[in-house]
Amino acid sequence: MLIQVNDRQIELPLGSDVTAVFDALELTPLGYALAINGMVLPKSEWPHTRLSPGDDLAVFQVIAGG
């Protein structure tokens, strides 16, 4: 299935969960936040949230500073 991640199309197996996005992008999920179709998704829900074809994800790196 095709999904959008930060304005880039990627292909994942049908039924993939959110953690598969990080595998596909070769990123460690530590330090990232994520929104699906404009809604922020708590990290605790990532392994339980199945993606659907056409989903639009925004992946944000969390940066602390002052």
Results as ranks from 00 to 15, higher is better:
Leu41Ile: 06
Pro29Tyr: 08
Arg8Thr: 13
Val18Pro: 01
Arg50Gly: 07
Ala35Tyr: 07
Pro53Arg: 03
Gln9Ala: 04
Leu51Asp: 02
Pro29Asp: 05
Gln4Thr: 05
Arg50Ile: 11
Ala35Ser: 14
Ile63Gly: 02
Ile10Asp: 03
Asp56Asn: 12
Gln61Cys: 10
Ala35Phe: 07
Asp55Tyr: 11
Gly31Val: 03
Asn37Cys: 15
Thr49Leu: 05
Arg8His: 11
Asp55Glu: 12
Leu12Thr: 08
Pro53Asp: 03
Val40Tyr: 08
Asn6Met: 05
Val18Cys: 07
Met39Asn: 10
Ala20His: 10
Asp17Cys: 15
Leu41Thr: 09
Asp56Gln: 09
Met39Ser: 15
Asp55Met: 11
Asp55His: 14
Leu57Val: 14
Met1Ser: 10
Pro42Met: 02
Lys43Glu: 00
Leu14Met: 14
Gly54Pro: 02
Ala58Arg: 12
Ile3Gly: 00
Leu12Lys: 06
Thr19Gln: 10
Arg50Ala: 05
Thr28Ile: 12
Gly65Pro: 02
Val18Arg: 00
Glu11Asn: 13
Phe22Ile: 08
Leu2Ile: 06
Gln9Trp: 05
Val59Gln: 15
Gly31Tyr: 00
Glu11Ala: 08
Pro53Ile: 05
Asn37Trp: 13
Gly66Asp: 00
Pro53Asn: 06
Thr49Phe: 03
Leu34Asn: 05
Val21Arg: 04
Arg50Asp: 04
Met1Gln: 09
Gly31Glu: 00
Leu41Ala: 03
Pro29Ile: 11
Pro47Glu: 00
